[in-house]
Amino acid sequence: MKRFWCFFFMFWPIVAFVLCWIAPDMGWWFPSNGPTGMKAASPIGERIDDLYYMILYITTATFVGTQVALGYVLFKGAAMTDEGNEQKVWYSHGSHNLEVIWTIVPACILLFIALYQMDVVKEVRVKSAFPAETKGGTVAIAEVTARQFEWRIRYPGIGPDGKKLPLMPKPQPTDLYTVNDLRVPTGEPSMIILQSGDVQHAFFLPELRVKQDAVPGLDIPVWFEASKSGDYTLLCAELCGWGHYKMKAKLVAQPEADHMEFMRQLTVQQNYDGVPEATNEVAQGEE
């Protein structure tokens, strides 16, 4: 029976290992519905994945090592109680050298892991290190307000010169609005200002590896870059009430021209006063 338990304790780490090994093929890995498949859909997301894999390799090595050691100890310890085994128990209170080794080595590895993350943390979070396009975290393309249970998005309007106006902290008459539909240009960093209208929410783009809480009373700048055009999932990741699960929205990344076109159409839609105008070229082509 004791051998059975040894095998029992060795069996499950093998199952766990195999499960993780086949997981990417079985679709139990990073979300793969988006335009980029299982690969992160943003440059910084790819670097986050790299960091993830680095930690995964280190922890897998540790996991395998400790489980093998455990297995060895168990089988050896089980053999000690076999009939006729005269071997004496190893009477030891420990080893100073071993303790020093297995304190210093993991300490170095852990410190390396921690310090190795710093660059990405800085680029994702520290305003002064934001990409040049956001001008140090001052130029946002939209204001996203999370509320129970939807995402309200406010874009700056289009000026007479056909270019986007700057996003003002307070709503302007020229502003454009969408709900649950965030539009950004592809291939360039875009920054949004994240707010909450009621309780706490979290802005989560799984395919882009972006997550930031929307905290009531705070305006939080979040930047990201979609490397490929297409629809991405946007959802809430912080418990915000009964409808938490249904704050379903999309992030649509479009080439710059299409993005501007969408903004123009949005302007026309929003200014539409109910009176059909034959001269309005843009409105004609629409749905």
Binding site: P13, A16, G45, L51, Y52, F63, L110, Q117, V121
Partner: peptide, 26 residues
């Protein structure tokens, strides 16, 4: 011991801020 190893190792993932950004609240 065996389970604590798993729990301890998975903790390293969420201790690293960039990785935690993705796996936080999942």
């Amino acid at each position: 011991v065996s389970m604590f190893i798993v729990g301890g190792l998975s903790g390293i993932f969420m201790a690293a801020v960039p990785v935690d950004i993705y796996i936080h609240d999942t």
